[in-house]
Structures are given as structure tokens and as C-alpha cells.
């Protein structure tokens, strides 16, 4: 039984590797499809495919979504042509639901203590109210991490992504200390998930990881190749995270699609620590007209997770005491 399952798993992988997967259409080889066959033959090409029962069938190519494989090795160092990816984070919507973190960890095969996108609790000064601050990699245009890499294991692409090739990384950790935003994390120990041999490694998927190398948010370019949004974006229940392409001047959170420049202009979008000159590609919309008080974000946390934010919460309490 176990053997059988393994076999079918590997055959599915092979199937994906051929580069084609069935999109919305499932072929059963009977019923109405055959009644349509006459017309379809005239206007479109046919592609031979295996259906779910293992039978070879022919399907019109127009009905099939092509699956774009992530780029590997040298090709991955070049960006997706014509794209300039950008992320916009609406701070007024974030309530620390941690769904972005969960889905990112699932998508990148990470353990629960490896957070490629983190949510900080920020309090800018004594008067201002705390707010939740999701922090992915900023994919800077002038990336300090790429500057210091001695082997070119981390690199900047034309589509704005800053990626890591863990096959080249020597684990010197210089990039981690060079990043002023503390985005990068080190793979301190060997994990079971790193040993998945069936998956072809690509810097675009960042899976599987390797012990003794560096990992971080990759903007999920492998998903963008197929027109899908990164994991964090599509999982946010509040729609606080937007993703898009500057060349298209469009950002979307999955539900709502906006013009990028207009949004930044009208809602006073800014980049965190702009004065460092790193030219990030992640913009923040200030936390005006918040949807709910920040305390809501603490509600569903475990005690351990709550302990993270002690530095801000204890300050709040002491401020309150002195205020009274």
C-alpha cells in the first residue's frame, strides 16, 4: 500500500516535470466532450495528456494552462522579463493574524521557528499608538546584503527580486549582519525538510533549504511565473498585503486591484528607513483609520508569542502609569 502511494506520487512529479498540467479542465473521455470534439478539432491544436485514470487522451491546447517551471541555476540569476515586483503593506489593516507567516512557512517548507515574514509591534514614540508591522524582505535596489557577499550567492535580479542560491552560499553570515532590517535568517541545524530529494532546487522556490546556509523571503517569483500571488499575499485575511508590478502600475491583494502610483500618492505611502539609501521595493501605507485597536492582535497569540512584544507592552504599561 505504502509502496503504491509512493509510486503514484513520483509519477505525478514526473508529470509536472513535463511542463504541462491540467488547468481547470478535467477530461473524462465521455459525455459532452465528445459531442464538442468536431468543432474543437477545427480551431485548435491537440495535445496528448494523461488523465487522472491513467488513460491517454487528447485535449485542445487552448484549454490547458501551461505550468511554468521555476528557473534553475544560471537562468535564475536573471529576472522575469519586463517585471518589476513591488509589495505594498497597508498598516491600518494588519491585525497580526499571522496567516502570512503560516502560509509562507507551509509554502517554503519551513519550521515554525523560521519566519521569513515577521510581524513586529511598533511604537514610534511616546504619543503614538502601537501598530502591527509586517516585515518581509525589502528586495532593495541597492541591497547591502548583495554588496558584501563574497561568492555572489545572493544576487539582485532585473525583476527586483533579491534571491539566494544556497548551492553557492558558504554560510559566512555577512549578509545577515549587513542587512539593516534583520530580514535574513540562518539555517542553524539540519532539518528533515532539507532532505527532500525529489524537489529540484531553484533560488526562485528556495526549496529545499540547506543546513549552514542563509534563507529569506524570496517574493515567490515561481508563483508569479504562473500568474499567482505570493503565499503571504493570498493568505492575509484582512487584505493588508498588496503585490504587483511597477511596470503595470498595478497592485492587488487578491480581492482588490489598485493603481500603484495613485495608491502611494493618495495614501502617503512610504518606505521604512528611507534615509539608509537601500531603495527598498516594499512600501508601507501609514496606519491611519485603523480597522481595530492593536490589542486585537494579541488575542489569538500563545503566551510565548505574546512574550515577544514585551518590550513595547511593558513600555505602554509604564507610560500609562506615569500618565495617570
Amino acid at each position: 500500500m505504502a509502496k503504491k502511494r509512493k509510486k503514484s506520487k513520483s509519477s505525478r512529479r514526473k508529470f509536472i516535470r513535463t511542463g504541462i498540467t491540467l488547468g481547470a479542465l478535467t477530461v473524462t473521455g465521455s459525455g459532452i466532450v465528445s459531442s464538442l470534439a468536431k468543432e474543437e478539432e477545427q480551431d485548435s491544436e491537440k495535445i496528448k495528456l494523461l488523465n487522472q485514470d491513467g488513460k491517454l487522451v487528447e485535449v485542445a491546447s487552448s484549454k490547458i494552462k501551461l505550468y511554468h517551471k521555476p528557473a534553475v541555476s544560471k537562468k535564475a540569476r536573471k529576472g522575469i522579463s519586463g517585471r518589476k515586483f513591488v509589495m505594498v503593506i497597508d498598516l491600518s489593516k494588519c491585525g497580526n493574524a499571522r496567516k502570512c507567516i503560516d502560509s509562507c512557512q507551509k509554502g517554503h517548507n519551513l519550521a515554525t521557528d523560521q519566519e521569513w515574514i515577521r510581524v513586529h509591534l511598533m511604537k514610534d514614540n511616546q504619543q503614538s499608538d502601537p501598530y502591527w508591522f509586517p516585515k518581509p524582505c525589502y528586495h532593495c535596489d541597492n541591497p547591502p546584503c548583495v554588496k558584501v557577499c563574497p561568492v555572489g550567492a545572493t544576487f539582485k535580479r532585473s525583476d527586483n527580486c533579491v534571491l539566494i542560491d544556497v548551492n553557492r552560499c558558504i554560510g559566512c553570515k555577512f549578509c545577515i549582519s549587513a542587512c539593516p532590517y534583520s530580514v535574513r535568517i540562518f539555517n542553524w541545524k539540519d532539518r528533515y525538510s532539507y532532505r527532500e530529494k525529489d524537489t529540484d532546487y531553484s533560488p526562485e522556490t528556495s526549496v529545499p533549504g540547506q543546513v549552514g546556509t542563509v534563507g529569506k523571503c524570496d517574493f515567490c517569483p515561481d508563483k508569479s511565473r504562473n500568474g499567482e500571488l505570493p503565499y503571504c499575499i493570498s493568505s492575509c485575511p484582512m487584505g493588508a498585503l498588496y503585490f504587483g508590478d511597477i511596470n503595470e502600475d498595478t497592485i492587488t491583494n487578491g480581492d482588490e486591484t489598485l493603481r500603484f502610483k495613485k495608491t502611494i500618492e493618495e495614501r502617503a505611502g512610504y518606505r521604512y528607513l528611507e534615509e539608509l539609501g537601500t531603495e527598498p521595493n516594499v512600501y508601507y501605507l501609514p496606519p491611519v483609520d485603523r480597522m481595530y485597536p492593536f490589542e486585537r492582535g494579541l488575542k489569538d497569540l500563545t503566551e510565548e508569542q505574546k512574550a515577544r512584544y514585551n518590550n513595547v507592552i511593558s513600555k505602554l504599561q509604564s507610560d500609562n502609569e506615569t500618565g495617570q
Binding site: 481547470a24 459525455g31 464538442l36
Partner: peptide, 20 residues
């Protein structure tokens, strides 16, 4: 019109050509 099996997302799609 026909019988279609659902896919992994639970979707069954029936295409009716404009000539039909």
C-alpha cells in the same frame, strides 16, 4: 448534456461550444 468528474479542486466544468 454529459457527465464530468470533479478535479482536485472539486470543480466540474462543461464547455458548450458556440456552434452547439
Amino acid at each position: 448534456l454529459g457527465i464530468i468528474s470533479t478535479d482536485k479542486e472539486g470543480l466540474a466544468l462543461l464547455y458548450l461550444s458556440k456552434h452547439y
